[in-house]
């Protein structure tokens, strides 16, 4: 019992000390990261012209593909806007009676892809035609109503794509009573095909420019490594791990990325502001709701994070290539 009561207060104390030690280590590790991050930033600020030039190069390289992607997504918005008004017009055969047309309308409406069906009966259609065309007298000469029953089909929202609408058209025109189906998909398909091609081209461009950014940062960081050769040697000599030696350069790359991302964002916002007037006017002429969309907060954040990752990657490439070459063996001389 006596040993127990003595041992007990000791154990938690040991555990506490261990935990405190771990806590200390974590704190000093984080403190070290903070210090290295701040130090890398200060180094960039001490060479403002060189840093600004790297930021500008990165900014331009990133702004170009992002601006194109924004433009394309705005174009896709246009076609989406058109699709929301897309309707399929199905003309029934002349010999279909009104009751059969009614049943057909219900049958089509029951399809999952269809939001609603409106039946325009031939008498009603003639009435409208008479009213709108001004051919009142001419129509009186006709013995029969030349117009068929017509179904106006509105697709379900999820089906309002070029492929979806086409599928629905195939379904409707497959019906026996339906003589002709009309939907103006041509220009929509062309626009979609075009934006598809442009989107892919833009991604290729983005990849190439992203690669260029990595190389630019890699080269810049390589110079930084050369400038700090002595420091790297000493750090390796006193037992700095590879991670320790790499860290300042990886932060340097990330800071280059941060600056490049901000510059890219500024360039994009500036171009949008400059383009918005003419685009509004053009859209007004076409009575279109087309508008160029900006990046928004999420987009800007994403852009900056991607830029930082690219910078980090570039630094990593340089560090991998050049840092491992610096070995303290050469210090000691012959």
């Amino acid at each position: 019992m006596a040993t127990d009561s003595r041992a007990k207060p000791d154990n938690p104390k040991g555990a506490n000390r261990k935990r405190a030690l771990l806590g200390d280590q974590a704190r000093s590790y984080l403190g070290h990261h903070r210090k290295v991050a701040a130090d890398s930033m200060n180094r960039l600020r001490r060479a403002p012209v060189a840093s600004a030039m790297t930021w500008a190069v990165m900014g331009v390289a990133l702004a170009l593909p992002v601006a194109l992607l924004l433009l394309l997504s705005s174009l896709q918005g246009v076609s989406a806007g058109w699709e929301s008004t897309a309707r399929i017009t199905a003309y029934l055969a002349m010999d279909i009676p009104a009751g059969r047309a009614q049943a057909l309308a219900q049958e089509i409406a029951a399809d999952g892809r269809v939001e609603g069906v409106q039946l325009i009966e031939r008498e009603q259609a003639l009435e409208e035609f008479r009213r709108n065309s001004g051919l009142d007298d001419a129509l009186d000469f006709l013995q029969d109503n030349p117009l068929p029953h017509t179904l106006l089909i509105t697709p379900e929202e999820s089906v309002r794509t070029a492929e979806g609408v086409q599928g629905l058209v195939a379904f409707v025109s497959g019906m026996q009573a339906v003589e002709q189906v009309q939907v103006d998909l041509g220009w929509l398909q062309r626009l979609n095909a075009m934006t598809d091609i442009l989107t892919r081209a833009t991604w290729v461009l983005a990849l190439l420019l992203g690669g260029a950014v990595v190389l630019v940062i890699g080269n810049t960081v390589r110079l930084a490594i050369e400038n700090r050769r002595d420091e790297i040697l000493v750090a390796k000599l006193v037992g700095g791990t590879d991670a320790f030696v790499r860290r300042p350069f990886l932060y340097t790359g990330a800071w280059f990325g941060l600056g490049g991302g901000v510059v890219a964002w500024l360039l994009i916002q500036l171009s949008l502001w400059w383009l918005s007037g003419p685009i509004d006017r053009l859209a007004g002429l076409y009575r279109s709701e087309f508008a160029l969309h900006g990046l928004g907060f999420d987009g800007a954040l994403g852009l900056i994070i991607v830029a930082m990752l690219l910078g980090w990657l570039g630094a990593w490439v340089a560090v991998k290539r050049h840092l491992d070459d610096i070995e303290p063996g050469e210090i000691a001389g012959g």
Binding site: D230, E231, K236, V238, G239, D242, I331, G333
Partner: peptide, 21 residues
Amino acid sequence: RRQIPYIRRHIGVVFQNHQLL
């Protein structure tokens, strides 16, 4: 190779040209 830094932490070295920064 990656253990080398930990060995070096147990060895102090003084150079003729002192390698100060």
